[in-house]
Design a protein around this nucleic acid. Structure first.
Lengths: 190, 190
DNA sequence: CTTGATATATACAGATCTGTCTGTCTATGC
DNA sequence: GCATAGACAGACAGATCTGTATATATCAAG
């Protein structure tokens, strides 16, 4: 049974993600989740803290989903890295997270609304991206790359470019373009 | 002499860009620009229309600046495309637009806050990106690329990836990473 | 059955936001 | 000089937002 705290986080994630953080009011989250206002402030203290809890949840949810999709490629690290771009395409098409659709990357969006790098929400966004780069680095090392850290940064940059392109230009094919570029980057491996 | 309308657009651009669209109130723009509220509504009718005017101004300003930076590379289209990534680095460091600093791409940010692709602000953002891709396509054709449209999409994707990485992770070196990747893409040309 | 923790409903305070209304001031052109 | 257009100043309406206060209901454990 899901707790009220989880109800709030899941509802807030959906509304913040699709409608923006600043533009989405507390009252809307309360109405859609059916939770009382006092319960929200008991659990989170402020809207800002709810935003941080939502971003942490999204980080777990997204990285968990992506790892699962990449694992479908089997044991080869190179195949897993390429599979990531197929996962992006599923995400861009709106099929990855039922009920959420695709409204770009929640962390890029958060960094846009909370532009100061010192803002806690911006920092969570940065950490999320860093964690993914670390995961890519391990796979690149496992695949025998000469410079795993640099290669992982390049893969990550392709991923960010695909996300921004898919969202701003409403162009989900960006995943395929990025994948083709990644294939050339990884051609020497395995 | 700058008109009141320009004063409003320039001040709103700075505040929207650094503080976000929804989070920045009309009153702040009026206070900082020294313009009366009635004057704003005389010129723009609503905050939404001011936002659109700001995005159009930013489109002209940014593409004009970028074209100027690229032109510094001389007549070679390949050199101009590579020069673009040097321009990105200047932008990321905050030196491109005095008084604005670097808060990511105003159009990626706008698409984040106005996520619906049918929203006028989102559409202006998409058009801005499309115009840049068209410019890249012309340069790729001029450089003798076999498939100028595809190559331009790849260059554009590297650019978007660099912007997102530089902002979210506070990592201006992303420009150099993207440039190195672009050099490999363009190696066969000229 | 009582106690304590948790949640609910509802009202409210205080701030802020967009947009309007009413005057007044000032400059420019005739 | 005078008329007209544009901008300023400042109050105000109405909505909305975050956060608080109060009083009530539910439910499980001892």
């Amino acid at each position: 049974m899901r707790s009220r705290r989880d109800d709030l986080i899941e509802t807030a994630l959906k509304l913040f993600y699709t409608g923006g953080f600043n533009a989405t009011g507390i009252d809307k989250i309360l109405a859609e989740s059916g939770v009382a206002k006092m319960t929200l402030y008991k659990h989170f203290g402020s809207k800002d803290e709810l935003i941080l809890a939502v971003l942490k949840r999204r980080d777990e949810q997204f990285r968990g989903w992506l790892s699962g999709e990449m694992a479908k490629a089997g044991p080869s690290p190179k195949a897993q890295l390429l599979q990531m771009f197929d996962a992006l395409e599923i995400w861009f098409s709106g099929k990855a997270f039922p009920g959420l659709g695709f409204s770009g990357c929640a962390f890029i969006n958060a960094a846009g609304e909370f532009s100061d790098p010192a803002h806690p929400a911006h920092q969570i966004a940065a950490e999320h991206k860093e964690m993914l780069v670390r995961q890519f680095t391990e796979l690149c090392a496992e695949a025998g790359a000469a410079d795993p850290a640099s290669l992982a940064e390049e893969i990550a940059l392709l991923k960010e470019g695909a996300i921004a392109t898919a969202h701003v230009r409403n162009k989900p094919e960006a995943a395929k373009i990025a994948k083709a570029m990644a294939e050339r980057l990884l051609a020497d491996l395995d």
